[in-house]
Design a binder for these strands. Structure first.
Lengths: 129, 129
DNA sequence: TCCAGTAGTTCGTAACTTATGAACTATGGA
DNA sequence: TCCATAGTTCATAAGTTACGAACTACTGGA
């Protein structure tokens, strides 16, 4: 019988730069984090469709876990669903500007790609990971 | 017969945030980058011993390649050795503050660890990757 | 209390990445 | 030409990630 282990939220002193960079180096996770930053409390299934491709539920679940265990988000069960919020204040206190700057860079890049895509018709889908 | 392929330096528009974060999410690569930032032109073998552990030459070579192909450094052959320099100006122009902030965070963390190590005698070597 | 539905997790495994020793290339000097 | 030095490539073992299938956990009826 499968057990459901408790969610792991590292305490802020245990959060590492390596961990944060690794977590946010994945475009799907960066997109999730970006969305959580504006719509706090969003659930896993709010993300089933991200950036023009369907992501399997199990994969998404792993991505949330990665963000959680890197210390970037906090997840709480509310009834049947899992509400997620960023830990941005804590993290920003520990590593000032880090996450904000990373997310800005991601945004800069997303804007560039959007522009490129409106110019050319179908420009060789940008390689993931 | 083994061929030696030409070094790949992506043009600055092809440098991605994902790539940068991934490259700098490895502590060895972050240490190399940090060192290059202060001692420009350093060679691969200057790094054979980094942060208390010996790193094999082949592994180091791959790390330099990763940094190079992420667009973070430029490598040029000078005689028998390979001189490496950061591409920090270009990269900073493309993603303002990104690399600087990441390196600051790494430094903050390194300082913390150093402090912790001087307090306790041998405190369970911090897990890599 | 049982059942169905919804939300998310875990497991197994296939696909991909990374680390490293051994063998190589490339260059310069004797 | 031969040797030494610096770094690269290859093969492969070890580690990581993605994803379908099967599960847990919870809620709201009947």
């Amino acid at each position: 019988m499968l057990r459901m282990r408790p969610l792991i939220h590292p305490s802020i002193e245990d959060v590492t730069v390596e961990g944060i960079l690794h977590a946010l180096s994945d475009p799907v996770r960066a997109a999730i984090y970006a969305e959580l930053a504006v719509s706090s409390g969003a659930t896993c299934s709010n993300f089933l469709k991200i950036s023009d491709r369907e992501i399997p539920k199990s994969t998404l679940s792993q991505h949330f876990r990665a963000l959680r265990e890197a210390g970037l988000i906090r997840s709480e069960r509310h009834g049947v669903e899992m509400r997620n919020t960023t830990r941005c204040e804590e993290v920003n206190q520990r590593f000032p500007g880090l996450v904000v700057t990373i997310m800005q860079a991601h945004q800069t890049q997303a804007a560039e790609r959007l522009q490129a895509n409106t110019r050319k018709p179908s420009p060789r889908k940008t390689k993931a990971r």
